[in-house]
Design a protein around this nucleic acid. Sequence first.
DNA 1: GTTTTCTTTGAATAAAAATACGATTTTTTT
DNA 2: AAAAAAATCGTATTTTTATTCAAAGAAAAC
Lengths: 162, 162
Amino acid sequence: MKNKRLRLQIIVELIKTNCISSQDELSRLLAARGYVVTQATLSRDLKQLRTTKVATDLGNYMYIIPDSNNLQDTMLQQGVSTAQAGQHSGFVSIQFTGHAAVIKTRNGYASGLAYDIDMSKSPEILGTIAGADTIFALLREDVTHEQAMKVFARFLPISDMA
Amino acid sequence: MKNKRLRLQIIVELIKTNCISSQDELSRLLAARGYVVTQATLSRDLKQLRTTKVATDLGNYMYIIPDSNNLQDTMLQQGVSTAQAGQHSGFVSIQFTGHAAVIKTRNGYASGLAYDIDMSKSPEILGTIAGADTIFALLREDVTHEQAMKVFARFLPISDMA
DNA sequence: GTTTTCTTTGAATAAAAATACGATTTTTTT
DNA sequence: AAAAAAATCGTATTTTTATTCAAAGAAAAC
């Protein structure tokens, strides 16, 4: 039970280097490496890692690691990685209005932060535009401020708005 | 049987603008728009469109269109013209939220396209701001998404998103 | 026009994935 | 250290997704 971190890491490895089309298949590969877990656990692991199954060019499905940024975030939450957290110290404030958020940063920090938000490809965020110290982020219509906050919290040094 | 193309197009629309977590849910949304198909068909459609289901930040799952480039390939194979040659080849996607539109372009194309939109002086569009690959366009309050779409269609290689 | 071939689809089913629940372990708080 | 809270995970089950098979429409070939 103590080696979930290593397991997640190995899962990422396996998915990156193999063509895995089901959780049972992954389970077997893991078992071969000494990690015996059930499909239920893998379902939870894959959800946490935000892997997805996509159709391959010919007929089959395979799991992929969708985006290395997202992954790293998730892994960091897990305490997996060595890299220091990429939380933005330039952050100043965030406010919402309608389907938009206005994020203030220290001068010069806006575009970097906006880039990170873009790269996360969070479906809740339709897009961002950054000036020198301000970011406008437009939210999908059905996304509440609270939900959006949770997304932004991944990038901002906000204690925990939950 | 001949309206598979339209159906695929609408599926893409629905997935982009809604938080859909199962094929049955999608089936219901489609039915509300007059397209009655079984889950089996949707499974095949989603495979063809290469959509995937990902975990959201809030513990649920939702379908997404993974990547506009890939998507476009797939759609074109189907003959679903989201984008064609000519006009603005930098165009990637457009989405609405509230009285705003978010237009994604290939990197570097946003300001050129925004300029063209500005220059048309369409009364429906109050103004635009462009970053490197994103345009925010604010719409007059009484303008519907559909109406705005018609305006943008003059600049974008979009067949007819109705 | 007819035959052949390819595509599309639903019903039923198989396969795969997600979760409710409970047990156990770890972590945190007091 | 004890108690409380949180995390991990398996079993069994539910939910969701993919595919098999057959039928029927369209397209192509003849």
